Amino acid sequence: MSNGPQCQLTGNDSAHVWLVSLDLAADRITALRENLSPDEQSRCSRFVIQKVSDRFIAARGQLREILASYLSCAPTEIAFRYGQHGKPLLSHPPQTLLQFNLSHSGEYALVAVTMHKAIGIDIEQLRRGRPLLKLAERFFSARETAELRNLPEQLQEDAFYACWTRKEAYLKAIGTGLATPLNAFDVTLLPGVPPSLAAQRLAPEETGRWQLVDIAVPGGYRGALAACREMKTLLVRRWPLA
């Protein structure tokens, strides 16, 4: 059983998002590493840069703590399996209906948790000076690129990262990764326009099945969530609980 806090979703139409800090004290990193599987410990030992290794431990270790708080088990009891394109899924405890997704960038991670439905989350650290229009031409759809180009320059960065995180969250939710090209579907990106999946050219029937939501994150970052079917309740909190 978990000795940590116990968390519970209020229903199948609710989701929780946890904001997680990855820059932790050395003793906390040591404790979190003890919760990792042998495979995860092997992966973190292969990182050359210590900060990268510590952030990996912080992300995976706290992911285990969060999932354990819903499943009433110890973080070490949790086991993962991976989908065809690498999406992590729970394999133990068995027969759980809990769905989750993890994203990390810079000093933060986001963990999304829900029941039954597919879910995806993305967080990106804003990096100044990137050639945003060139990146959009390479990765975004023609519609998205045109909308971005037509915005005033001072609005382009926020719109670019809004588009990027919404697209990544959707791809992570459906679990195909880049097997689904980024330019095969459109998301909204213009200021004042609610987040949504505007078009899916490979599967047009998908458009109405997905809900996209922007997630409030610290300054210098952008976050988004994608969920299959509408969420009536979305709770965003920091981990660990005080």
Rank of each mutant, 00 (worst) to 15 (best):
S2W: 03
N3H: 13
G4V: 02
P5D: 13
Q6K: 13
Q8F: 14
S14H: 14
A15L: 08
V17W: 11
W18N: 00
W18Q: 01
L19A: 12
L19S: 11
L19R: 11
D23N: 11
A26K: 10
A26R: 12
L32Y: 03
E34M: 07
S37D: 01
S37M: 02
D39L: 06
E40H: 01
E40T: 03
S45V: 09
I49S: 03
I49M: 12
Q50S: 15
K51D: 15
V52I: 03
S53H: 06
D54C: 09
R55W: 14
A58Q: 10
A59G: 01
R60Q: 13
G61V: 02
L67I: 05
A68Q: 11
A68G: 10
S69C: 00
S69N: 00
C73Y: 14
C73R: 01
I78R: 01
A79E: 03
G83M: 07
G86C: 01
K87A: 13
P88E: 00
P93C: 05
P93G: 06
P94C: 11
T96G: 05
L98R: 11
F100A: 04
G106N: 05
M115I: 15
K117C: 14
I119D: 10
G120V: 07
D122P: 07
I123P: 01
E124L: 05
R127L: 11
R128K: 09
K134H: 14
A136S: 10
F140I: 10
S141P: 03
E144L: 08
A146Q: 12
E147I: 04
R149K: 06
N150F: 10
L151V: 00
L151Y: 06
L155S: 08
Q156D: 04
D158N: 14
D158Q: 13
A159C: 02
F160K: 00
Y161P: 04
Y161Q: 08
C163Q: 04
C163M: 05
C163E: 13
R166M: 05
Y170T: 00
L171K: 13
K172T: 11
K172W: 10
I174A: 15
T176L: 05
L178F: 12
A179T: 09
T180Q: 10
T180G: 03
N183P: 15
N183A: 14
F185N: 09
T188G: 02
T188K: 01
L189P: 06
L190N: 11
S196C: 06
A199P: 03
A199S: 15
E206P: 07
Q211R: 05
D214I: 11
I215F: 03
A216R: 07
A216F: 02
R222L: 12
A226G: 04
M231E: 10
M231G: 14
T233L: 14
T233N: 14
T233W: 07
V236H: 12
W239H: 08
L241A: 15
